[in-house]
Nucleic acid binder design. Sequence first.
DNA 1: CTCCAGTCTCACATCGATGTGATGGTTCGA
DNA 2: TCGAACCATCACATCGATGTGAGACTGGAG
Lengths: 133, 133
Amino acid sequence: MRIGELSERTGTPRRLLRYYEEQELIASERSANGYRSYTEGTIDRVVQVRGLLDAGLPTRIIKQILPCLDKPRAIHVEDADPEMIATLERERDRMTARIDCLARNRDAVAEYLDAVLDLRGQGELGQGVDERS
Amino acid sequence: MRIGELSERTGTPRRLLRYYEEQELIASERSANGYRSYTEGTIDRVVQVRGLLDAGLPTRIIKQILPCLDKPRAIHVEDADPEMIATLERERDRMTARIDCLARNRDAVAEYLDAVLDLRGQGELGQGVDERS
DNA sequence: CTCCAGTCTCACATCGATGTGATGGTTCGA
DNA sequence: TCGAACCATCACATCGATGTGAGACTGGAG
């Protein structure tokens, strides 16, 4: 498919698809006329990339961890480079920290929301509960 | 405490502490001489803010969810504003999506790492583990 | 053939988070 | 009293992700 379709199907501006390619997060073939041509698989890839970007990872890191996810069972010698391994371990731990932080705060927000919605349901919201105008 | 100590104890540049205050993510008193003065509690607050920033939330959103976390049991009438509730629900769901995405990818990275480290342990890699100088 | 929609590249603008430096006031110990 | 080490504000720079528009090519529909 060409860039317009990929853009529509992933909800991603063309500009960003070109940017992701420049950052080597996605790849494309070129048709005879120079147009980019993507495979179906690129859709999932784009979604994944955007999810990671949204979760705060920079393209530099995403580029490094993506190869581990494509070919879950294929391990390449160059991947075993000690530096790369250290990077991956660091990022794994950072991701875990992020997850914990997000989960804690998400739970707190959810709890708060439940409490507020409870009050609304009971029509107790006026002077109610914690009083305090 | 003053800004220097807070900076050291949170590992956060002074510049950013002032920025967070400008964005209303943290608060400070002012001493007679105009110096900022923080309470012990500000340390946790800063850590929390930085965690959320690192997880991809913008200051605008952090500012909105922080009040729900401070006073877990105190619900204020103004918080029950339908718009605010909608915002919180949206953010809660976005955070959940982020968590899921991060967890999936973190697990994949971890799995990959385990596999690579296994190989190294068994010396099955290429010509030689890492053997390297 | 012409028009229009899609694509290309390139360059500049914006936005949020962060770095850095200038300039000046306060505190404190040698 | 002087200098070092704080602190203050203000302004400008940077960096990554993203927006936007110009100028040119391609290809299919009318």
